[in-house]
Structure formats: structure tokens, C-alpha cells
Design a protein around this nucleic acid. Structure first.
Length: 423
DNA sequence: TCTGGGGTCCTAGGACCC
DNA sequence: TCTGGGGTCCTAGGACCC
């Protein structure tokens, strides 16, 4: 059996831990740039605020009900996530951290315990240790655990715990879950399935396997298999190495000048390099993209992107920034109002550069010993005194910076922000 | 008139996830 | 006026190899 432990309204719940007055009040967390709604409390969902909706379209509703809004505080959410996962890891030996707010657990060996009681213990302990409410779903496969979790959240009678431990319960559960709610069935497949009169997870499970394989390829066939109780997605306890690293942002206002774009792209490239070293990897390819506002039907539209192969794999901020800027110069067009830019590192490897053939023509070589030492010093200083303490000059101008008007304090990761309790 | 067979690698695009 | 960010996997098709 597998369990899926999923935090309820995670980002909102994190804010509430340090602001309990917000419990029972409609609360939302916004995306970067304060643009969209990306987490909603139960009360906010009840008002009809959709997930992912742009704030400006729901301004009236938000104001009328005095919905409390937060800019995203990822430093806080990341730290709260590791507290939840640490507590979970103490309770269950085999877990896979699937996302910032979810983990799977393999329950083999727990056969002689009541899974209901086990799930309750997990839920109560995480709540007690971290303040975060979670739901627990248990089923014979990961996909069925997801279905169970969905029911645990949606139907009050489960009180946050749903265990599908026999066929009858499983079939009943599948009947109650719309096909679009199934893990692995997105918008496109859901639309096609509805057109074929497949509306629930049970309808889908009853289809001919060959038909599913043909229409939905191997990924769809796996979902189908798993819903029928045959496990084909194993627990992945070790996180696989990253295959790409991306840093991108929408701008706080439109950017037209090359110099400002250089500041943005340079900053994103430098951020990518830091992530790269944190993952202990080297990059082989750098990609840069810029584009104008896709929603703006009036303005001139342009999107440009190029990938450059680095002559030698590197993890140096200098090398990566240098290449990113060179690409930017190639794709930049005068006379456009840019809305977003990003840098993507690809061709990632953990091989050390000494094992790789160096460039015949002596272009920039990120494996140079002095660069490695500088990067080491850079990361050490920023690790100790805060990121951005030491940075390249190009990272300094930040007129394009995003709106973040409702940011909460970093309660758990910054001394100045720690909560004060008065007696 | 008649033109093989067996591969690999790369990229773009689509679909999905949180 | 105002619409996020960061990922993965799969497939088809093109280009190339011998």
C-alpha cells in the first residue's frame, strides 16, 4: 500500500501558522508580481475564487469580502515544507518527497497496524509539530493513493483520512471522482475522454487497455493500469539529478532598453549558476529567452530565444553570465516592450570538467582553477551574510523588479523577522 | 524500370505535474 | 493598468551515420 500525505492549502496554511487571527477568514497567496491567485483558503474557495485566476479580474470580490492577500514568501514555505517532511520522515521510514507540499510513503511492513490509525497519527503529529494541516490518502498504487487523498480533502465525512484497502471501497471511490481530477489526466485528455462518454475515474478504468495505450501513449496506459490496482510507478526515495535549471521573471513594468534587459538576464544567469553549484552539477548549454506581453493584443509581439553550447562545461557565474549576455545581444530587437525574460541551463552533468575534452581554441574555460576558488568564496560569503551580499555589477540595476507589496516576514529563516512574544 | 537496412542524436511541440 | 514560475516525460520528424 502507498500513502499520499498532502498539505491543505499549503501556502495559506504557512501564513496562518504565524498569524492565527487569519483562521476562518478568506486568505489567498499570490504569484510573483502579485499577479495570480496560487493558494486559497477554504473560505476563499467558497467565495468562488478560481485557482490561478488573475487578481485584477476578481478585484471586486476580493475587496467586498476583505480577502487577505499575501505576496509569495518562498523562503517561509520552503522552510515549513522541510519541517513537515522531517516530521513525516520520523514517522514513516520510506518516503518520497514529491513536491513542496506532498510526499508519498511506501507502507509495506505496516500490514499488522490499522492503516486508519496510522494515518490519523501522521496527521495529528504533523499538525502538532508544525501547525500545518494535512490530508492522508492510502491505496494500492500511487495513483489510487492520490484518488484517496482527493476524497479525504473533498468530503467532510472522511475528516482528512481516506483508506482504500479493499476492492469495493476502491470502486466506489473511483465512481465519485471526475476524470479530470485523476493524477496524470490533464485538460487535453479530459476533454477527449468526456467526448467519449468517459466522465469518472471508474469509466476510465473500465476502458480496454489497448485503446488507452493507442490514444494516450505510455503515460496514459500507466495511469490506467494504476487505477486498476497494478502498481507501475515505484517510490523514488532518492531525488534524481536535475536535467535543467531555469530562472525567469515577468517584469514589474515593461522594459524597452537593452541595458535594462542585460541587468535582468545577467541576474537570472547568476541565479542559475548558484542553483547549479548547489546541485553539484555543470552546464553544457545556456538558453536565453525574452518576450513581449502575450496578452496584449494591441502592442507589437515578439519572442526570441537561442541556445548556445558552452565550449567547456562550467558552473562559473562568470562564464554563464557572459554567454547569456552574448545570446541576449543576438535575440534583442529594438522597439519592443519586453514583459518577461529567462535563462535556462541544460545539458547538465556531474562529470568534472577535467574529464571533458577542453576547447582547442582556448575560449572561456570555466574549469579554470581560479574561477572555482572565486565561486567557492562567493558562495561562502553569500551563505553566511545573505544572498546578494557579493554579486556582479550587472546584477545591481533592478528597475524591472517585481511588485511584492504584501510580503510577510521570513519568520523562520531571518533573525530580524523572528516573532516576539510578550508576557 | 529498377534505389536497403539498421541505427543514433537532436529538437520542437504537446502533455502533464506542483 | 493589472495574467507566475519551475520542472518532467514522450513522440514525431529531420538529419545524420555506416
Amino acid at each position: 500500500m502507498f500513502a499520499l500525505i498532502d498539505c491543505n492549502n499549503f501556502y495559506v496554511s504557512c501564513e496562518r501558522v504565524f498569524n492565527p487571527a487569519l483562521c476562518n477568514w478568506p486568505v489567498v497567496v499570490l504569484s510573483n508580481n502579485d499577479g495570480c491567485i496560487i493558494s486559497r483558503s477554504q473560505e476563499a474557495k467558497a467565495l468562488g475564487l478560481p485557482m490561478g485566476a488573475p487578481v485584477f479580474k476578481h478585484r471586486q470580490l476580493l475587496e467586498k469580502h476583505q480577502v487577505v492577500m499575501f505576496s509569495p514568501n518562498f523562503a517561509l514555505y520552503g522552510d515549513m515544507s522541510s519541517r513537515v517532511m522531517n516530521t513525516l520522515g520520523d514517522l514513516l521510514p520510506d518516503i518520497e518527497i514529491y513536491s513542496i507540499d506532498e510526499a508519498f510513503a511506501d507502507l509495506h511492513g505496516f500490514g499488522r497496524f490499522s492503516l486508519q490509525e496510522l494515518a490519523r497519527t501522521v496527521r495529528d503529529t504533523i499538525r502538532k509539530h508544525t501547525g500545518i494541516p494535512v490530508s492522508v490518502g492510502i491505496g494500492a498504487t500511487k495513483t489510487l493513493a492520490k484518488v484517496a487523498n482527493h476524497l479525504a480533502k473533498k468530503q467532510a465525512r472522511y475528516r482528512g483520512v481516506c483508506v482504500l484497502d479493499d476492492e469495493l471501497k476502491t470502486v466506489e471511490a473511483l465512481q465519485g471522482v471526475p476524470i479530470e481530477e485523476v493524477w496524470g489526466i490533464g485538460r487535453a485528455y479530459a476533454r477527449r475522454l468526456h467526448a467519449q462518454e468517459v466522465h469518472t475515474a471508474l469509466d476510465f478504468a473500465m476502458l480496454e487497455p489497448d485503446l488507452v495505450r493507442r490514444q494516450m501513449h505510455i503515460t496514459g496506459a500507466r495511469v490506467h493500469h494504476e487505477l486498476r490496482g497494478n502498481s507501475c510507478l515505484p517510490l523514488e526515495q532518492v531525488r534524481p539529478a536535475k536535467k535543467s535549471i531555469c530562472t525567469s521573471r515577468s517584469f514589474g513594468r515593461k522594459v524597452t532598453g537593452l541595458e535594462e534587459l542585460e541587468n535582468a538576464v545577467g541576474s537570472f544567469a547568476a541565479k542559475c549558476a548558484v542553483k547549479l553549484r548547489k546541485e553539484d552539477l555543470y552546464a553544457g548549454l545556456v538558453k536565453v529567452f525574452v518576450h513581449t506581453d502575450a496578452f496584449d493584443r494591441q502592442g507589437k509581439y515578439y519572442r526570441g530565444s537561442r541556445t548556445a553550447a558552452l565550449p567547456v562545461i562550467t558552473r562559473s557565474t562568470f562564464g554563464i553570465v557572459q554567454y547569456a549576455l552574448a545570446i541576449l545581444h543576438v535575440i534583442f530587437r529594438e522597439g519592443y516592450a519586453y514583459q518577461k525574460a529567462g535563462v535556462i541551463l541544460d545539458g547538465l552533468t556531474n562529470a568534472s570538467p577535467e574529464c571533458v575534452t577542453p576547447s582547442l581554441f582556448g575560449e572561456y574555460d570555466g574549469s579554470r582553477d581560479d574561477d572555482a576558488k572565486v565561486m567557492h568564496a562567493l558562495d561562502a560569503v553569500n551563505g553566511r551574510y545573505g544572498s546578494g551580499t557579493l554579486r556582479l555589477a550587472i546584477e545591481s540595476q533592478r528597475g524591472w523588479k517585481q511588485r511584492m507589496e504584501k510580503l510577510s516576514p521570513r519568520y523562520t529563516t531571518r533573525w530580524e523577522d523572528i516573532i516576539e512574544v510578550r508576557g
